[in-house]
């Protein structure tokens, strides 16, 4: 994918996000690929607060806000309603953070993916609950310092490794699951494009984990946004008994 070919149209701009917010970059890039024919679900969190807080209506596609645990559930409802009205060409997009995806929202996501609904899901993984001020999530990597990781006397760092969400989703035998980073925009947007194109009769859901650090993250190994550890893992449809 060449950057010249990506649309000029801005579907998300003028948010109230912190200057340099990685999540907004991830969302803006994704919307450039998904285009105007998209309906988005955002749970309570930074992304909703900075783009859909009246009067700052910064998103220029339909946006449904929902509670924290149920981004994927909200997606399911939209998919069903659009299908029954014959509007299956519309892409339904769910965007939630690592907490809203891997912790409180994993039941809803697992359910929606298992039902084989047709949508694109982006987990904006900044490796902690950043909207509430930096508490640990199951996606917080080993060694990261958060406000809720007491491991011993005067020690505040995460002593458990990061949960491997992409493999969890791949275990649902979905046709596409990938992990990408906004540090590599072309690959990231290519992943989104692939996810969007897996559609139609196959009924194929997708999960994308975009690692994009929150600018407020306090981390023992604080990383430059450009040099973020980058893993690209694409999992094609697995045979029923297949292993990754």
């Amino acid at each position: 994918m060449r950057l010249q070919d990506v649309t000029q149209e801005e579907l998300l701009y003028g948010t109230m996000a912190c200057a340099g917010c990685g999540g907004i970059i991830a969302l803006r890039m994704a919307l450039k690929v998904l285009g105007k024919n998209t309906v988005m679900v955002l749970p309570a969190g930074c992304m909703m607060a900075v783009s859909g807080f009246f009067p700052q209506m910064a998103v220029n596609i339909p946006l449904v806000s929902t509670a924290f645990p149920c981004t994927a559930s909200a997606v399911s409802g939209l998919v069903a309603a659009l299908k029954v009205q014959g509007k299956e060409d519309i892409t339904v997009l769910g965007v939630a953070g690592d907490g809203g995806t891997a912790d409180i929202g994993i039941q809803a996501l697992s359910g929606a993916v298992e039902r084989g609904e047709n949508f694109v899901y982006i987990c904006y993984d900044n490796e902690a609950y950043m909207n509430t001020g930096g508490q640990r999530s199951s996606e917080t990597p080993y060694g990261a310092r958060t406000t809720t990781t007491p491991v011993g006397r005067n020690q505040m760092w995460e002593d458990k490794p990061k949960k491997d969400l992409v493999r969890i989703m791949a275990a649902h035998n979905i046709p596409y699951a990938a992990r990408a980073s906004i540090s590599h925009p072309r690959e990231y947007m290519e992943n989104i494009r692939k996810a969007k194109e897996i559609k139609g009769t196959e009924k194929s859901p997708f999960l994308e984990t975009g690692i994009s650090q929150c600018i407020n993250m306090r981390c023992n190994f604080r990383r430059n946004k450009r040099k973020i550890c980058w893993v690209s893992l694409e999992i094609k449809k697995q045979p029923q008994s297949g292993r990754i």
């Binding site: 309906v39 679900v41 449904v64 929902t66 509670a67 645990p69 149920c70 994927a72 559930s73 909200a74 997606v75 399911s76 409802g77 939209l78 069903a80 309603a81 659009l82 009205q85 039941q107 809803a108 359910g111 929606a112």
Partner: peptide, 14 residues
Amino acid sequence: HTAMTACYTASCAG
């Protein structure tokens, strides 16, 4: 929880 969420968004979609 998902049932009610799906109802809410399906209703949003008309």
